[in-house]
Design a protein around this nucleic acid. Structure first.
Length: 489
RNA sequence: CGGGGUGUGGCCUAGCCUGGUAAGGCGCCUCGUUUGGGACGAGGAGAUCGCUGGUUCGAAUCCAGUCACCCCGACCA
């Protein structure tokens, strides 16, 4: 963005009461956009969040795409209780150690103290594990492929809307398998599903990879992740998939009778994606004009702006007719009939990130045309024939998606660098990601974190095998690969 | 939990130093003129100035306490 554009945007933003500031105050920008685009606000209890209708529609679309893919991969939805007996959560040692500081505990019911306290689920491995142990008896019951759409609660010291709230919504998949191979395959399959979702539906390129041991889910044998880069160069973990080994099977006695009649422990997995994706979408695509919503998750892919329709009712009729035609073609079209001036509507939908806007006015209509404006290039409007609209719009939406994906990919590539010295590293993680060889020790990670606040994001599955000296200590590198470090949300 | 900061109509802020009973912009409502990129005019509604206590004839303003929120760090999807 050049200075003129930026200051123009800021003037306009100031009129709106939005402090849309450039990259130097990304956190403030994010907060203002979330509020001004009417996405969410803080709830009455510290750390909770109210999701407003516009954001909820985005989430509904996200849910639909994910759920379809879960079904395609053979999973079934079920629902487990919000409250978990305290004794369940303490059964797996690493799990409770990891989650203890984050638990919300229910101590009373019906005005009386509970005999056994219950925790509000921070995640459901434990209750679902308990049920799995009852449901699984034979190898014929495997694999058991479950998913749950639910809310969870974790105490957060520093809440941020969508990114880190005490209560959040997600889907959590939980599966049980006969052996390691099958479970690992599932773990990676669902990681691929997440990657597909991010790229195909949110136009967000992600780096897929394995977490280093220190970053694993409490109780997991191995954790995988998809990491996205936000416009300030920070990383955001967009989804995770865990291979839990037999740890939860041991804790909850999830066993099956194998073909050879031997009672055998299951290998389990769990994987999740959350409303944080809305935050990812905002921070990966948004700009000084507000949100940029990728078409696949846009509540309104096309917004019709009728001109002078109070005096010329046929304009509104035509807008409604065109919108209906587009809806029939599978496009989410919306006619903005509000009692506001057209300029206001253009700016409002830019702020809310609608991909396309179509002006319908008596002047153009007389010539059989409408005017199409794209969110990313507000100054370039195209006149197209009314009769071409239904075929034209879907193509435009596809191109728009490609444009967003390309922009985000180029940004990420421009801000990811292979580095081999400490000085380079310190410089690189200020604005982006660094891929390095390091010795994999906690001490080294700690030293890096203290000096730069960067942490290991993942060991990308796409990287070639590589060994060498740790860029910090000079000791032999770990993991046989480069690891991506970056500051993270 | 450590370090900083802020609390004034729905939102953003001025006023506080130097006490005299609350001001402006945005938004909202009504009417009129407008309507092809955030309209203009006139009128109007809306705040016991975070809370409690103290000083004073009088407190948004001074003092003490308290609560809440925000930012930086540690935890985390």
């Amino acid at each position: 963005m050049n200075d003129a554009t930026a200051s123009h945007a800021n003037d306009r933003a100031t009129n709106l009461g939005v402090n849309v500031t450039p990259e130097d105050d990304f956190a403030q920008w994010y907060q203002d956009i979330v509020k001004k685009a009417e996405l969410a606000e803080n709830g009455p209890v510290r750390g909770t969040m109210v999701i407003r209708p516009y954001a909820w529609r985005i989430w509904e679309l996200m849910q639909r795409y994910l759920d379809d893919m879960f079904k395609e991969t053979g999973h079934e939805n079920a629902y487990f209780p919000l409250l978990i007996p305290e004794s369940y959560i303490t059964r797996e040692a690493d799990h409770i150690e990891g989650f203890a500081p984050e638990l919300w505990t229910v101590t009373h019911g019906g005005g009386k103290e509970l005999e056994e306290r219950a925790v509000v689920r921070p995640t459901s491995e434990t209750v679902i594990g308990e049920m799995m142990s009852k449901w699984i008896q034979s190898h014929r019951d495997l694999p058991l492929l479950l998913n749950q759409w639910a809310n969870v609660m974790r105490w957060e010291r520093r809440p941020r809307l969508f990114l880190r709230t005490s209560e959040f919504l997600w889907q959590e998949g939980h599966t049980a398998h006969a052996d390691r191979e099958d479970a690992m395959e599932e773990t990676l399959r669902m990681l691929d599903v997440y990657e597909t979702f991010c790229v195909r539906d949110v136009a967000l390129p992600v780096v897929k990879g394995e977490k280093v041991p220190s970053e694993r889910f409490p109780g997991a044998d191995n954790t995988f992740t998809v990491e996205g880069m936000m416009r300030d160069g920070k990383a955001l973990q967009c989804g995770t998939s865990h291979y839990l080994g037999t740890k939860f099977a041991e804790a909850f006695d999830i066993r099956f009778q194998a073909k050879d009649n031997v009672s055998t422990l299951c290998h389990t997995t769990s994987w999740g994606m959350t409303t944080r994706m809305i935050g990812a979408m905002i921070m990966a695509h948004g700009d000084e004009k507000g949100l940029v919503v990728p078409p696949r998750v846009a509540p309104h892919q096309v917004v019709f702006i009728p001109m002078r329709f109070d005096k010329e009712p046929h304009v509104l009729d035509e807008a409604e007719r065109l919108a209906a035609e587009l809806r029939a073609a599978g496009v989410r079209a919306h006619v903005d009939k509000r009692d506001q001036r057209p300029g206001f509507k253009h700016n409002d939908w830019e702020l809310k990130g609608a991909p396309l806007r179509v002006e319908v006015g008596p002047r153009d209509l007389a010539e059989g045309n409408v005017v199409v404006a794209q969110r990313m290039f507000q100054d370039e409007k195209e006149t197209i024939a009314v009769t071409d609209l239904v075929t034209d719009i879907p193509t435009r939406l596809e191109r728009y998606h490609e444009l967003l994906l390309q922009r985000a990919t180029e940004f990420r590539e421009a801000n990811t660098k292979q580095v081999d010295t400490w000085d380079e590293f310190v410089e690189q993680v200020k604005t982006g990601w660094a891929s390095v060889l390091y010795d994999g020790t906690d001490e080294t990670e700690q030293k890096i974190k203290e000096a730069t606040s960067a942490t290991p994001r993942c060991i990308p599955s796409g990287f070639p095998a590589e060994e060498g000296a740790c860029f910090v200590t000079g000791a032999p590198s770990a993991f046989s690969k480069r690891v991506i470090f970056g500051r993270a949300y």
